[in-house]
């Protein structure tokens, strides 16, 4: 598995343990920043940070994954940034809804981090980031 230091990944999850888990895993391959809810992440992006890909939890306080994705897609600069949604929910309606509002992928927790890595790599390749 290759290392891409120039790729900045934003990880958003309100659950500290999941955040740590993702951060630990992905910082081996990318430059990682974490935020604990959609609102915080949104403010960070609006302050000028522009990640190459976003991994976001679905259910979060303040601003959840749906709202976050919807808002991000409204921003011109972020309209094509890959967004991966992670959720503990298996229901297909949630999955479809996420894809419908512009998320690129949807993974169910607990997930295999290697799977997430390759999905992410593939999207990044397609969007010409790597």
């Amino acid at each position: 598995m290759a290392k891409f230091d120039h790729i900045r990944i934003l990880i958003i999850d309100d659950e500290i343990s999941i955040r740590k888990l993702l951060e630990f895993y992905f910082k081996k391959y990318f430059t990682v920043t974490t935020k604990s809810d959609g609102k915080e992440a949104m403010e960070f992006i609006k302050s000028g940070y522009s990640p190459d890909a976003i991994i976001a939890d679905l259910k979060m306080p303040k601003m959840d994954g749906y709202e976050f994705t919807t808002e991000i897609r409204k921003m011109k600069s972020m309209s094509t940034t890959p967004i991966m949604i992670l959720s503990g929910n298996e229901s297909s309606s949630d999955r479809i809804h996420c894809l419908k509002i512009g998320a690129d992928d949807y993974l169910i927790k607990p997930f295999n981090p290697d799977e997430l890595y390759y999905r992410l790599i593939n999207i990044l390749k397609r969007t010409g980031k790597i």
Binding site: E15, N89, K109
Partner: peptide
């Protein structure tokens, strides 16, 4: 429902099946 939902992946990472 919300708390149980959040607990699921936490239980998951030490190998418990929710």
């Amino acid at each position: 429902a919300a708390t149980a939902h959040k607990l699921k992946p936490i239980a998951g990472y030490v190998g418990l099946d929710p």
